[in-house]
Amino acid sequence: MPQNFFYQEKGLFLQSLHPAASLTLIAAFFLLALCFSHPLYLLGLLLVILFSLWAADGLAAWESYLKAVLWLGLLIMLINALVNHSGSTILWRSPALPLLGQLSVSMEAISYGAAMGVRLLDVVSAFCLFNLIVHPDRFFSLFSTFARKSSLVVSLATRLFPLLLATLGQIREAQQLRGVDFSRGSLRERTVKNAALFNILLLSALEDSLQMAEAMQARAFGSGPRSRYRRDLFRPRDGICLAGVGFSLVAAAYNLARDLGSYTYFPQLGSLWGGNFSMIALAAVLLGLSLPALLSWGCNHWPYLKWKI
């Protein structure tokens, strides 16, 4: 069972970014993955996210994500292939089936399903990057400026998690010392034993919560405007990354306005290349988004740059 955050502090360049800059980068990846439907744009985006994951030393973590969403990706391809009948290049027709009628699978529907599989990978990989470069506490610290109570609640719950896990272990040990054997008995008996464990945990945790509330009140929580300690610095590296993401978003908006990021799947597949200008426009979008990963690479090889930004 995971006992620690998915995030692991490794002192990487991308982890040192201001949470606002990191979140803007992730949001841009997410937004563009949903806006673009051109297969080359989606693939390009995936390459940039993988480059960023490599810079965040997260390719191993990405593999675990890949395993988790593999079935969903396959399902998306299968459903698209079966429910979409707009394609004109029919590859296979099923015999007449009861209730469903005759099913047909077209090359266009398979291509669309494959492109959506890449879109899924884009979105999931972007969130994987979020897990690797944004510390939960820094995330809450960002939101505590305008959502004080909500961020406090979520941050408290996150902090209480390991504490409750330790309490659960203690309660289990105390029960075992009293002769309760959790591994013996029928399924019903074991469930009753574990139910008792859960009830004790809930009861003691809620009792503790009242004490926690009193401690917060004793420290003057809620007695006036909240003071806060800001640790996150906004450095030149954050400005450069934000400028890169901003440039990409402007370029992407231009592409979408000129219909360059979209692609005709039905009734027949359009040309994949779409002209030299389309590829230059794509390169501009990807260049801006890969700036944080490029800076990370630069800082690893050039200490002067790291010192300067």
Binding site: K149, L164, A205, S209, G222
Partner: peptide, 24 residues
């Protein structure tokens, strides 16, 4: 929730229940 008059005790109880659910 931000604008509600949620008391300190309510905040602590929500956090604990959220944490217990997350643990489960």
């Amino acid at each position: 929730f931000e604008q509600s008059p949620a008391s300190t005790r309510e905040i602590a109880v929500i956090a604990v229940l959220g944490a217990v659910a997350a643990l489960g």
